[in-house]
Deep mutational scan, measured.
Amino acid sequence: MIVFVRFNSSHGFPVEVDSDTSIFQLKEVVAKRQGVPADQLRVIFAGKELRNDWTVQNCDLDQQSIVHIVQRPWRKGQEMNATGGDDPRNAAGGCEREPQSLTRVDLSSSVLPGDSVGLAVILHTDSRKDSPPAGSPAGRSIYNSFYVYCKGPCQRVQPGKLRVQCSTCRQATLTLTQGPSCWDDVLIPNRMSGECQSPHCPGTSAEFFFKCGAHPTSDKETSVALHLIATNSRNITCITCTDVRSPVLVFQCNSRHVICLDCFHLYCVTRLNDRQFVHDPQLGYSLPCVAGCPNSLIKELHHFRILGEEQYNRYQQYGAEECVLQMGGVLCPRPGCGAGLLPEPDQRKVTCEGGNGLGCGFAFCRECKEAYHEGECSAVFEASGTTTQAYRVDERAAEQARWEAASKETIKKTTKPCPRCHVPVEKNGGCMHMKCPQPQCRLEWCWNCGCEWNRVCMGDHWFDV
């Protein structure tokens, strides 16, 4: 396979590697080409510095992935760790964990309700045991953590790749202090920090972006993250068709209702045909949960890209028209025109101005929308079919299609509260000796007794199943 190397943020060049090629071997190839010592090179990928003893497969490097290699003399205490030698983080029983690669970060837990604080980093599902597709590297999971809308060759929703760059020099040479644990960490600028490894760059702020994971991409090709779309790892039924499908869209209502993408497309087109989208002054033209839940309008309007190009163009047109109407304007009634106009409040005669090729020149009556006339309008008909009709959803289907309910059931079956801080902690095999993952707590306690870890627990039921 081919990976592209950008040395000291210059133009990239291809390097041929195998899945079992080590990072140090990659350094040696680059060092020979650039005429520099291999031990002064640092390989940066997806916000993480890659260790010498890791392989291309370990690092989730795919065909035509772009890695950054910078030349920086080692500072005291760094060289041993980078070589894969006596790194205290690798000691058996050590409590410190390697910062998780962005290629394996899962933010789907952050669609849980606000009262489930902490689960994004504490609760991990076991539903990723799908067998890898044919042709994928051994052991590589097909679980997708992110979804994007690819405006490039795909023109559809695709699995996405999370990447990070330095907000100062805009190069992907920043190593994160810690990985993101929720969508806010990724979507809110300057929320996460790190250290830029580019020479002479003092940058410390992280800037995240997404790429389409279905095809090789260049540095400049980015895609918009659709953070309401998630892999259906909890096997929730769709609120409309009641099938279990994946991926799904999880509405931001209190129940976190789930809808499959085909039904979401149908829901949007139906509402669009009836012009029953909601115009929100802050958000724009949007839709609420299909069950009509309060405070559930979709905030990231790129989710409506699921409509496809033709329907999305209609959505944008109707949204612009609705904006004009909300501002007190009118639409030209001549067939084939429909231009938005903003006449004076007491102006009865409205002319669709033909300047700049935008208007048709038609003069019409503001009251009856017919060709302009003197005197009273002959008839004014009330528009028919403008009443909002509820999208029919079966109550039982709505009850079963809740992301929140599956989460709470998982928590109930696989977790116990920490005796000190009461945060839910998952036990997935292993011994009875637990350690609270909350940095402010870190209590060592017994899963069996529910009390602080002691010699009695150690001698009596340390390794009970």
Rank of each mutant, 00 (worst) to 15 (best):
Phe4Tyr: 12
Phe7Gly: 03
Ser9Gly: 04
Ser10Leu: 03
Glu16Pro: 12
Val17Thr: 03
Ser19Phe: 06
Phe24Lys: 09
Gln25His: 07
Lys27Ile: 04
Val29Lys: 11
Gln34Asp: 04
Gln34Gly: 05
Val36Cys: 06
Asp39Pro: 04
Gln40Val: 05
Arg42Lys: 08
Arg42Met: 10
Arg42Trp: 02
Ala46Ile: 02
Ala46Leu: 08
Ala46Lys: 13
Gly47Cys: 03
Glu49Gly: 00
Glu49Trp: 01
Leu50Val: 02
Asn52Gly: 06
Asn52Ser: 07
Thr55Ile: 10
Val56Gly: 01
Gln57Met: 08
Leu61Phe: 08
Leu61Met: 11
Asp62Arg: 14
Gln64Glu: 13
Ile66Thr: 13
His68Asn: 08
Ile69Pro: 00
Val70Thr: 03
Gln71Thr: 09
Lys76Gly: 14
Gln78Met: 13
Met80Arg: 09
Thr83Ile: 14
Thr83Leu: 14
Asp86Ile: 12
Asp86Met: 11
Asp87Phe: 12
Asp87His: 10
Ala91Ser: 09
Ala92Ile: 13
Cys95Asp: 14
Arg97Leu: 12
Arg97Trp: 09
Pro99Cys: 10
Gln100Ile: 08
Thr103Trp: 06
Thr103Arg: 11
Val105Pro: 14
Asp106Phe: 04
Ser110Trp: 04
Val111Leu: 09
Val111Arg: 11
Pro113Tyr: 09
Gly114Gln: 13
Asp115Ser: 06
Val117Arg: 13
Val117Gln: 15
Leu119Cys: 14
Leu119Asn: 15
Ala120Tyr: 05
Val121Ala: 14
Val121Met: 15
His124Met: 07
His124Ala: 14
Asp126Lys: 10
Ser131His: 09
Gly135Ser: 11
Ser136Met: 12
Tyr143Asp: 05
Ser145Gln: 09
Ser145Thr: 11
Tyr147Arg: 02
Lys151Met: 13
Pro153Leu: 07
Arg156Pro: 04
Pro159Lys: 09
Pro159Tyr: 07
Arg163Trp: 12
Gln165Asp: 05
Cys166Gln: 00
Thr168Pro: 02
Arg170Asn: 13
Thr177Val: 10
Gln178Val: 07
Pro180His: 01
Ser181Met: 10
Asp185Val: 01
Asp185Ile: 01
Ile188Leu: 11
Arg191Pro: 02
Arg191Asp: 02
Met192Thr: 05
Gly194Gln: 03
Gly194Asp: 00
Glu195Arg: 12
Cys196Phe: 00
Gln197Trp: 07
Gln197Lys: 12
Pro199Phe: 06
His200Gln: 14
His200Lys: 12
Thr204Ala: 08
Phe208Cys: 06
Asp219Ser: 09
Lys220Ile: 09
Ala225Tyr: 04
His227Val: 09
Ala230Asp: 01
Ser233His: 12
Arg234Leu: 07
Asn235Asp: 09
Thr237Ile: 08
Cys238Asp: 01
Ile239Tyr: 06
Thr242Ile: 06
Asp243Thr: 13
Pro247His: 06
Leu249His: 02
Gln252Asp: 09
Phe264Glu: 00
Tyr267Ile: 03
Thr270Gly: 04
Leu272Ile: 08
Asp274Lys: 03
Phe277Lys: 00
Val278Cys: 11
Asp280His: 10
Gly284Phe: 03
Gly284Ile: 01
Ser286Ile: 00
Pro288Trp: 03
Pro288Ala: 08
Cys289Phe: 01
Gly292His: 06
Cys293Asn: 01
Asn295Gly: 09
Asn295Val: 04
Leu297Ser: 05
Leu301Gly: 07
Arg305Met: 13
Arg305Pro: 02
Glu309Val: 08
Gln311Phe: 07
Gln311Gly: 05
Asn313Tyr: 15
Gln316Ile: 14
Gln317Leu: 08
Tyr318Trp: 02
Tyr318Cys: 03
Val324Ala: 10
Leu325Thr: 05
Gln326Gly: 10
Met327Pro: 03
Val330Leu: 10
Leu331Gly: 03
Arg334Gln: 14
Arg334Asp: 04
Arg334Met: 14
Gly336Glu: 07
Gly338Trp: 05
Ala339Pro: 03
Glu344Asp: 15
Gln347Ile: 09
Arg348Cys: 06
Lys349Glu: 08
Val350Cys: 07
Cys352Lys: 02
Gly354Thr: 12
Gly355Tyr: 09
Asn356Ala: 12
Arg366Tyr: 07
Arg366Ala: 10
Arg366Gln: 08
Cys368Val: 02
Cys368Asp: 03
Glu370Arg: 04
Glu370Lys: 04
Glu370Thr: 06
Ala371Lys: 09
His373Thr: 02
Glu376Asp: 14
Glu376Gly: 10
Ala383Lys: 13
Gly385Ser: 08
Gly385Ile: 08
Thr386Lys: 14
Thr386Arg: 14
Thr388Ala: 13
Gln389Ile: 14
Gln389Arg: 12
Ala390Lys: 12
Tyr391Ala: 06
Tyr391Glu: 06
Val393Ser: 06
Val393Lys: 05
Gln400Asp: 15
Ala401Tyr: 02
Ala401Val: 00
Arg402Pro: 02
Glu404Lys: 09
Ala405Pro: 13
Ala406Arg: 13
Ser407Pro: 13
Thr410Pro: 08
Lys413Val: 15
Lys413Ala: 14
Thr415Met: 11
Arg420Cys: 11
His422Asp: 08
Val423Asn: 15
Val423Gly: 15
Pro424Ile: 09
Asn428Phe: 13
Asn428Pro: 14
Gly430Thr: 15
His433Ala: 06
Met434Lys: 07
Pro437Asp: 07
Pro439Glu: 05
Gln440Gly: 14
Gln440Trp: 08
Gln440Asn: 15
Cys441Asp: 00
Arg442Met: 06
Trp445Lys: 00
Asn448Thr: 05
Val456Arg: 15
Met458Trp: 03
Met458Ser: 15
Asp460Met: 08
Trp462Ile: 06
Trp462Asp: 01
Trp462Cys: 15
Trp462Tyr: 15
Trp462Arg: 00
Asp464Gly: 15
Val465Ala: 15
Val465His: 15
Val465Pro: 15
